Simulated scan of single mutants.
Amino acid sequence: MESQPEHFISLPLVGKEEESPRLPLAINVVAKYWGEDLVQPDSPAQPRGAVMIDGIELAEKAGLAAYIYKGSLKNLKKRIDQGIPVIAIMPGIQDVAQHATVVSGYSVDERRILTYVPEPDTVGAVPESKFEDDWEQDDSTAIVIVPADMKELVKKEEAQFAQSNRLCFEAERLRQQGNAGKAAEILRQAAEKDPENAQAWSQLGGVYNEQGSEEAVVCYERAVKLNPKYYLAYRGLGNYFLKKQDYSLAEAYYSKAIGVNPARYGPIYKNRAVARMQLGNNAGAKGDLVKYLEQTPGAQDRKSIEDAITQI
């Protein structure tokens, strides 16, 4: 890192006392980097998963400009060299499907992407190939927040899917609030605006899935055709067919998701175990339940799963 200081942004440290239920850590860090304090400690807590668009809107109210677009490694490095940190939507771990990380630099010599870690004098370093592979699982979604007078640095031709991705984030909030009808309407607009946007199709599939509509399959399949690494679309197809009691297809799609990233989301193994038990594959089901507990150490149903493992 010392040999490549021109490719590194020093970001402010945000302590736990500065966290807010409406303000995601990643947006808090970037806003502070630009000299804006967005913390509103008295704000009511929002549902899990709905806070990203809330945080973006807080940043905009403070006079910052925000863009949500499909990025690339080349564009990410360009932003770093412009002095602009990038928020990347990445795979989660354990029982969290996604998380946002702030990219603060890159190392030319080591071919690594440097990320913000909320600890003093600490930086994460991820091999470029792994970072790119992981990022593609969420369609390389990037969030860039800059002062209004720097808006011209984010050129329209570089910000692919900016409008439709914004609609996707707004729809996710509506979905979390229980307004699936309005969320579906907005996601249909996003898909019409950018038919090549895999995120829009996957999220629309998610809304239809919750409604039990077979339209979910069409949307999810459109997403994975556009992006064969779209983990959440494969998982969504698995969930759809599990509910429809088509256990063979459920197992197949869960296996495709696991093939994309075997360590992304622990509970998927529990779901595949259900499908495998129904198919008579008890050995496979047992292995999946063991994997579920390994990857989800805080599982609330640990005792019942351990009992099930001993009985299979």
Rank of each mutant, 00 (worst) to 15 (best):
Y253R: 06
Q211S: 13
S3T: 14
K286H: 05
N179A: 08
G49W: 11
A184F: 04
E185V: 01
Q4I: 06
D109E: 15
I113W: 11
K155C: 01
L25G: 02
A299L: 01
I268R: 04
H7C: 12
G212N: 10
R302F: 10
K256N: 11
S20I: 05
G280C: 05
D138C: 00
Q46E: 15
T115G: 08
A45D: 12
D54A: 11
A275S: 15
G124L: 04
R222I: 00
L23N: 09
P44V: 13
K155N: 02
G55D: 12
N209T: 07
F161R: 00
Y230L: 08
Q300H: 07
V274T: 13
L187Q: 06
E57H: 09
A198E: 00
A66E: 04
P47A: 07
Y116P: 03
A184Y: 02
N28L: 13
P24D: 06
K16Y: 12
M52E: 15
Q160E: 10
A100E: 15
A100Y: 06
E306G: 08
E210Q: 14
K286D: 09
P228F: 05
E251L: 04
V290Y: 03
K182R: 11
L64Q: 02
K291M: 14
L76A: 10
A97S: 14
A45L: 03
K74H: 13
H7A: 07
E17I: 04
R112Q: 15
Y33Q: 05
A216T: 03
G266Y: 10
S213Y: 02
Q199W: 03
G181W: 00
Q82G: 02
E6K: 12
P120F: 01
Q311F: 10
P24T: 12
I87C: 03
R166I: 00
A97T: 13
A216M: 05
L289F: 07
L58C: 03
K77D: 06
A275D: 05
L242T: 09
D246Y: 01
E210R: 03
S255P: 09
P5F: 13
D81T: 14
R235G: 08
S140P: 00
S248P: 01
E215A: 03
V86I: 11
I27K: 05
K151G: 08
Q82L: 13
Y69T: 06
I80K: 06
E192W: 01
G266Q: 05
Y269F: 15
V144M: 07
E157C: 00
